[in-house]
Simulated assay, not measured.
Amino acid sequence: MSVDLKALIERAETWPEAARDELASIAEQIESELQTSEYFASADELNVIDAAMASLDRGEQATDEEIRTAFARFRQ
């Protein structure tokens, strides 16, 4: 994918403030990831992890058949 980054930034300057803030946040995250080998999960990712762990704590888990089905779907 070839993107004219300079043109995109110029267009982004006309975006609403919330959209510009989101773009800046994403760019800072990318820059941070490029500068370090450590990975820091986002708040959304941490919420998903917490929900999954709570589900396991309640004894909820996939059956062997559900796991086989999931792996088969991912391999396609």
Rank of each mutant, 00 (worst) to 15 (best):
S42C: 05
I9R: 05
I67Q: 03
L23Y: 01
P16W: 02
A54G: 07
D4P: 01
T14S: 12
A62E: 08
E10D: 12
D21T: 13
A54Q: 12
S55G: 13
Q29W: 06
Y39V: 14
A7S: 11
P16Y: 00
Q61W: 01
A62H: 12
L23E: 00
D21Y: 08
E33L: 14
R11E: 03
D64H: 05
S42I: 08
L56T: 03
L5E: 00
D50I: 13
A52H: 05
S2M: 07
E17H: 11
D21V: 14
A27Y: 00
E65T: 10
L34Y: 05
E28P: 02
F71K: 07
G59W: 01
M1G: 13
A27Q: 05
V48W: 10
I30N: 01
V48L: 14
S55T: 13
E22D: 09
I26Q: 09
A70M: 07
A18L: 08
R73E: 04
E17R: 13
E22Y: 09
A12N: 00
I9G: 01
Q61C: 08
Q76I: 07
A24V: 11
A19P: 00
E22V: 06
E66F: 04
L34Q: 07
A52C: 08
R75F: 05
A52N: 06
T63I: 02
E38S: 15
D57M: 12
A72W: 00
V48A: 12
R73Y: 07
I9F: 07
Q35E: 12
D57A: 15
A52P: 02
Q29F: 12
F71Y: 05
A62R: 13
A7I: 03
S37G: 07
I26E: 06
A12V: 03
L56W: 05
D4K: 02
R68V: 03
D57I: 12
E66C: 03
S2P: 04
Q76T: 03
I26F: 11
E13Q: 14
G59L: 01
A24G: 08
M1H: 11
A19T: 09
D64L: 12
W15E: 01
N47V: 12
F71P: 00
A27N: 02
A51V: 07
E38A: 15
I26V: 14
D50E: 13
Q76P: 01
S42R: 10
Q29P: 04
I67V: 08
A43F: 08
A62G: 04
A70L: 13
F71A: 03
A27L: 11
S42W: 04
A19V: 09
S55P: 00
D57L: 14
Y39H: 12
E22G: 07
E17N: 08
S42H: 05
E45Y: 03
L8W: 02
A41T: 05
A54N: 12
S37T: 15
R73D: 07
M53H: 13
Q61M: 10
R11T: 00
E66G: 03
R58Q: 12
A54S: 08
F74E: 03
A62N: 10
D57F: 14
A27R: 04
E33I: 06
D4L: 01
Q29N: 15
L34G: 13
A70Q: 01
D57H: 14
I30D: 00
S25P: 01
I26G: 04
E33T: 12
Q35R: 14
F71M: 08
E13C: 09
L5M: 07
F74N: 03
A24W: 02
E28T: 11
E10V: 05
R20W: 00
E33A: 15
A62W: 04
R73C: 04
A70T: 08
